[in-house]
Write a protein that binds this DNA or RNA. Structure first.
Lengths: 203, 203
DNA sequence: ATGACACCATACGCCACAGTATGGAAAACA
DNA sequence: TGTTTTCCATACTGTGGCGTATGGTGTCAT
């Protein structure tokens, strides 16, 4: 979020010069806004008020920028999964929190949504595969902890994640009730009631 | 599927010359294979063993081709919804058939999947919106017919369609068990059991 | 101060595709 | 048979992005 200075000199916080990390960060933001295919050197440079002379000093080519940017985002996302959700003890609360968090953490979800739209891209695909597997495994584990047999928990994890993916898709099409409206909340409640087994204290 | 002759002369079935419909059909197939962004005049012409001189005789520009191709596909899809699914009387069978049909009708699903990946494209978006609304309404209606109150049926329709969308996404990422394997069937069964209320003759 | 190095601007060549202009061949028509 | 119409090939311009080459400017160490 904040500007990362070039390390060597006194970090004056007024970036005298750009670093590779700045390009990667800008690329991630552009992915969130306009998708992977919009990550082009010259437009990105214009957007940053600079020329591509800078870019080709930091990176050999466009492919390399994408690689770095995607790697950076994937790490951030993996950390998120462990910290935000890993700390919740009750598996049921963990599952509920999974859906409730869709509204929050805007940037990460927007990036992921853009990546989904770019499945098939050779650099994106492996990232997508790893991320989806991590998250599905996380969900399946929670269902197992709630007492489901393994095979069923796996199917349920896949099913639950599919609901999330479908939601992202509908969001890309602007066909989702506005986040933080009562209709949205009602839908979330419905999803939770349908997919997450009731806890001990409920009917 | 078959070649549509140019109408005026005797339809010799050996297309002496190409029609606009041929270009639209080729565009649809290219969308299914490589996505919307791959629909470029010159590559498409090369693929058809012809030059773009032909294209610009039938169409004013690329935008127009996309418009026609998408319109053609959307009509086909709307017809499909009425005929294939509309004829089934029991709403429960209709819902089950919805999922079972994912394996069949390859081309249509591949096209739709590609369109989903191109949400945000100005020409694709309205198509996507109409198609999703039609299909979700279809699902919601079936749930209502099964006795659900309206609000719940709507949420359930949206939820069910999200599962379908999520499945398409996972398929794009090659993360779905191979269609027509026993693992796939088990998953489908799980989805049906979770989302579709049991019929009269079941526990 | 002076050289070295980090960072960026500018200008260039290349390629792919959009769209235009124009001519040509073959079929349809008169 | 001659003419018109239909359909396509070829050649051209224009645009936008990739990658390179090279020169310039500031900031460090010595």
């Amino acid at each position: 979020m904040t500007v990362k200075a070039t390390a060597k000199v006194a970090p004056k916080n007024e970036r005298a010069t750009l670093s590779a990390a700045d390009w990667e960060q800008a690329a991630v933001e552009l992915i969130a806004e306009k998708g992977v295919q919009a990550v082009a050197i010259e437009p990105l440079a214009r957007r940053m008020g600079i020329t591509k002379g800078s870019f080709y000093w930091h990176f050999p080519n466009r492919e390399s920028l994408l690689e770095q940017a995607l790697h950076r985002w994937e790490e951030h996302d993996a950390r998120n999964l462990s910290t935000s959700l890993g700390e919740i003890d009750q598996p049921r609360d963990r599952l509920i929190s999974f859906f409730r968090r869709v509204g929050k953490e805007k940037l990460t979800h927007e990036v992921y949504s853009s990546l989904c739209a770019a499945a098939g891209h050779p650099q994106v695909e492996p990232v997508l595969e790893r991320v989806a597997n991590r998250r599905m495994a996380h969900l399946s584990a929670a269902f197992r902890e709630m007492g489901m047999p393994e095979a069923q928990a796996n199917s349920q994890g896949r099913l639950t994640y599919s609901v999330y993916l479908g939601f992202l898709q509908l969001q890309r099409q602007h066909q989702t009730p506005s986040l933080s409206s009562e209709e949205f909340d009602a839908y979330i409640e419905h999803v939770i009631a349908t997919l997450i087994p009731p806890g001990p204290g409920e009917q």
